[in-house]
Amino acid sequence: MRTEIAPLLIITKLEQYDYTGATAIALVMLVASFLLLLGINLIQWRSRRFAEAA
């Protein structure tokens, strides 16, 4: 529990054939990184538009 990071937890669950559990963690991480990236891209896009307008 102390040195376990999320990807390792997925591996552990996969080795126990707990596909549902592994998928649940994976889904949370996927959605989180997608939203984070989308946010960054939108900020970048807006700042570029701002720079072009100025």
Binding site: A6, L14, A26, S33, F34
Partner: peptide, 21 residues
């Protein structure tokens, strides 16, 4: 923007998830 985000996704997500997919 969504497309660019999808292109970036493999960078941001843990490779283990890529395998799981």
């Amino acid at each position: 923007n969504v497309l660019i985000t999808l292109i970036d996704l493999p960078f941001a997500v843990s490779p283990v998830i890529a395998g799981l997919i």
